[in-house]
Computed example of a mutant assay.
Amino acid sequence: MLDFPNAKINLGLYLTEKRPDGFHNLQSCFYPVQWSDALEILPSEREQFDMSGLPVPGSAESNLCLKAYKLLQQDYSLPPVHMHLHKVIPMGAGLGGGSADAAFTLRILNKLFELNLSADTLENYARQLGSDCAFFVRNKPVVATQRGDVFEPATVDLKGYTCVVVYPGIHITTAEAYGSIKPKLPTCDMHMLLKQDVEVWRSVLHNDFEEALFPKYPELQQVKNKLYEAGATYASMTGSGSAVYGLFKEKAPGELVFPGHYAVWKGLL
């Protein structure tokens, strides 16, 4: 069975407090975009996992796809499978690619072996794999709170907008990003912010990580500025970086060019 785990962008991201367990509580809107990996899982005589595309650090055993399979295998009699992951979504970019791979592994296994697990049950498994993994089970816009794993429906619709996502080839680890900012309570409710016109988001909708990471990585600020200069209605860093996206009400200009080592995805939302 073949599927295509997709990325997400953050519409606003606020770190609200440090938790006793060492994680952070946050508020954000997760919105899916179709920059995708490819994941194929087939029944096999022996367990096998291999990858192609972008190189993924670490051993196969540490990959979230294999961890998702092992997690389900603890509770269900899953036969051996051959999993192949073709990696396209950049890592350390704040796009949630690894989390999507894990969640889609659970989804595929559920269908392939007719486990008949509900979306709620799959989300509970996904929460054990990573903070935002559960989002990709339903894969619909949500307002996320707590660790990024508690969801409410988001009343935001960006259909018709073109999204341009720019990854400048900078890998920012979660530890680096979260260690660089001090949590604070937001002054506005996320639902209220999202109800405002996209045209005013530039003034009211922010990513807390930008203040800390833009001075350290000026390329990120330069990408954001270039997106606005090209006519973006709204531009922001996504997640804890380093990808930056722009939302264009009209078709994004074709002459939007970035240095050769940058990865750029463009698609209609």
Rank of each mutant, 00 (worst) to 15 (best):
F4G: 01
P5H: 08
G12R: 03
L15V: 15
L15F: 10
E17V: 00
R19D: 03
D21C: 01
F23P: 00
L26M: 14
Q34H: 13
E40M: 00
I41D: 03
R46T: 14
E47H: 09
M51N: 01
G53S: 11
P55I: 05
P55H: 03
P57A: 00
G58P: 08
A60D: 10
N63K: 10
N63L: 10
L64H: 06
L66V: 11
K67L: 13
Y76G: 00
P80Y: 03
L85D: 08
V88L: 13
I89N: 09
G92N: 08
G92E: 10
G94N: 12
G94M: 11
L95M: 15
I108H: 08
N110F: 02
F113N: 07
L117H: 03
A119F: 01
Q128F: 02
L129Q: 04
C133F: 05
F135I: 05
F135E: 09
F136G: 00
V137W: 03
N139M: 00
N139K: 03
K140N: 01
V142G: 06
V166N: 09
Y167E: 12
I172N: 12
I172V: 15
A177K: 07
M190T: 15
L205P: 07
N207L: 04
F214L: 14
Y217M: 01
L220R: 10
V223T: 10
T233D: 15
G239K: 09
V244F: 02
A252L: 00
G254M: 00
V257F: 12
F258Q: 13
P259L: 05
Y262H: 12
A263S: 15
V264R: 11
W265V: 12
